[in-house]
Simulated assay, not measured.
Amino acid sequence: MRIVACLNGDRRPGAHPALPVSLDQLITDAHEAVAAGATALHLHPRDPGGAESLEPQVVGPLMERFRAEGPDVPISLTTALSAESDPWRRYDLVQRWASPSLPDSVTVNLHEAGSVDLIHLLDDRRVAVEAGVWTVDAARILIATKVPVTAVLVEPTQVAVEDARRNAEAILSLLDRAGPSAPRLLHGSDATAWPMLEDALNAGLDIRIGLEDTMRMPDGEEAEDNAALVARAVALASAAA
């Protein structure tokens, strides 16, 4: 089972005392998350001011530093429109990422404009794509286009747990009938993060956790850091095994 630590997401600097933003913070946090049991990392690159960025001059140094000093686990980067709101400019930025410092994979949200073209570009560049599927309609896009993906991230965004669960079940049902055979990961956010993680464990799916998804432990207490979140997820996974 894959346990992905999502370290920062699109949260603003200062949203949590331990949210890693700078490159030094990300490197340190990554080592601690992997030591706690994470088997892969998901990052949102940040510029010197702390804003999300897909600029080559941000992504290149991040990946070079992680290759030299980071933990030896796969690294995925976001391509969400939260990091670059113009889909055509996003395509251009990703096209200009330097080959020696490409990530192991990237996440691409199927509901976002330009997603299919971006996946074809990444496939040409031999960067693995994890398809972000937030809705049944996004699952239909994945099935209809047959774009090459190495994983499917089922990501219900509903605030209420039961609503998120219904959405996830509908997506997974459709993927079971007609979707790609790629491994699936299920996760929620904030109030649904831990319930979705437990649902994923019960279904034998991959999991992810980190300050991108929630800043709280299952009991509602504020999490100390990403490592604490990962350690609790690992404990839940061991108990479910």
Rank of each mutant, 00 (worst) to 15 (best):
85 S>R: 14
143 I>A: 09
38 A>F: 00
90 R>Y: 01
119 I>R: 01
76 S>L: 09
118 L>D: 07
84 E>T: 08
85 S>C: 12
112 E>Y: 01
140 R>I: 03
123 D>H: 14
47 D>L: 04
148 P>W: 02
41 L>D: 09
80 A>F: 00
53 S>W: 01
89 R>Q: 14
94 V>E: 03
141 I>M: 05
108 V>C: 03
90 R>D: 09
131 A>I: 07
130 E>S: 14
136 V>C: 12
42 H>M: 11
106 V>K: 05
126 R>G: 12
127 V>Y: 00
138 A>Q: 10
108 V>Q: 01
53 S>K: 06
44 H>W: 10
81 L>P: 07
95 Q>R: 13
74 P>M: 10
63 M>V: 11
48 P>N: 09
104 D>P: 05
143 I>E: 07
36 A>S: 09
74 P>Y: 02
147 V>D: 04
52 E>A: 12
138 A>D: 15
77 L>R: 00
61 P>H: 07
127 V>R: 00
129 V>G: 01
52 E>C: 13
97 W>H: 09
109 N>V: 14
70 G>R: 00
26 L>W: 02
156 P>N: 06
126 R>T: 15
92 D>H: 08
35 A>I: 04
117 D>M: 11
112 E>M: 10
138 A>E: 15
110 L>C: 12
144 A>G: 13
54 L>M: 08
128 A>C: 10
61 P>W: 02
128 A>S: 13
145 T>F: 02
146 K>D: 15
153 L>N: 12
68 A>M: 10
